[in-house]
Each structure stands twice: as C-alpha cells, then as structure tokens.
Design a protein around this nucleic acid. Sequence first.
DNA 1: AAACGTCCCAACCGCGTTTTC
DNA 2: CGAAAACGCGGTTGGGACGTT
Length: 224
Amino acid sequence: MGRQPCCEKVGLKRGPWTLDEDSKLMNFILNNGIQCWRLVPKHAGLMRCGKSCRLRWINYLRPDLKRGAFTEAEEDMIIELHSRLGNRWSKIAAQLPGRTDNEIKNHWNTRIKKKMKLMGLDPLTHKPIIEQKDQVFAEESDQEIHQNLENQENVTYQVQQNSDGPIICDSNDEDKNYSFFKNSEIGSSVMFQIGNFSMDPYQNWMDHNPFMWDGFSSLGDNFP
DNA sequence: AAACGTCCCAACCGCGTTTTC
DNA sequence: CGAAAACGCGGTTGGGACGTT
C-alpha cells in the first residue's frame, strides 16, 4: 500500500495555460490555500495534473512574483550565489524575493552565461578562461616556477597597461610580460605564493590567482 | 516581403527525496 | 519496514517573438 495516485493520467490537458485555466487556479488557491496539489485540479475544475498546477502557480500566478527584467544588482547576486551554490536554482531563488528558480535558471542560461564569457570568465567555474596564447605561458612557466621555488617564497608581478589591455610583468625581469590578467586593475600587484604551487600550471592558476570574487566573501556563512 | 536563424521562456520530463499507508 | 505516490528540483525542449539577410 502506498499513496493514492496524484491524478488520472488519461484525458489531462497539456501545453500552454489559457486565461480561463489561470483564473480557475488562481481563484481556487486564493480562496482555499494549498493543502494537497493532487486535489487542486479536481476541486478547481481543471483538467491538469497537480504537478502542472503547482508549476503554473509557482512560476506564473503567485501574487508575490516580481516579474520584469532583472536588475544589475539581482544579476550580480545571482552570479555570486551561483559561484557558491552551483546550479541549485531553488536555493538561489530563495535569496531573491519575487523571483522563481525557473526564471533565474532561464536568465542564467540565456543572458548571464554569455555576459560572463564576454568578461572572460567560465560560467561553470567562475574563473578566467585561459586562452591559447596564455597556455604557452603556463607551459613555459612551469620550469621557472620550480626554479623560483628554490630561491624565494613569493614572486611579485605588476599589472600594467599595453595596447592589448592589462598585462602582468615580472618585477624582477622587465623582458617577461604575460597577457594573463585581462580584468585586472592597472598598477596593482600580483603575488604568487610559490611554495604552494603544484606541478600542474593550470591548477596553479586556478588555485592561487587573487581575483576570485573576493568582493563577495563578505556575505559570509549566511547561506546553507 | 519571405525565408531563415537566433533568442527567450513557459512548460514538460525524469529523477532523487520525502511522505504516507 | 517496504512500497508507492507526492513533491521538489534541475535539465531540456517546443514554439512564438524578434532580428537579419
């Protein structure tokens, strides 16, 4: 023995909701609340399954939905939350009043992903995308890293402007310039903790670059 | 104006978890 | 306690809207 089936599977309507269906569902829920989604379509006079009613209510009919375009602040928050929570859209939506998980997911897939790629960031990892020419640096630098490892603890580079945008320069060797930090502030310094470098230069970059959403760390441990 | 391509989003699908019997 | 349905979530898709050729 288990639960009763949620609805009769035959004869159910699918596809886009009509105004009449919306009206019936809205009126029923506003007058009766939600006790059991299985019973909602039956009592509201709808030929839909409870699951479909639930989705329609949550994503479209709920009176507290904000609707309209996402603001810059909302986008920033989504990016930050995604970097911490990954594709846990319902958790992300819980931090954005009036927005649904479906809405945020759609916005992420259609807008924010592209925006991040344009910024040179991988939407999956939120870390800079290493281009082909940078990979040459990464490969060449491996040997150098190990040489430095024997000589000093930290290596400092400075971010400078050239015709192609920000580059970092080895402060100890003016001939060595690397087009690596495209979103970095001109004049800032970059210090690698050489002692923590591994054999994999790509992993080194992932683990030790100093530009990883530091501004968001203030949000602390308020998230589950 | 028509054909085609791209974008966007509502809705569906399938799966893991929770709840109920 | 196990079985089965409800629930909730994330991935995917269908098709309308819009832009481009």
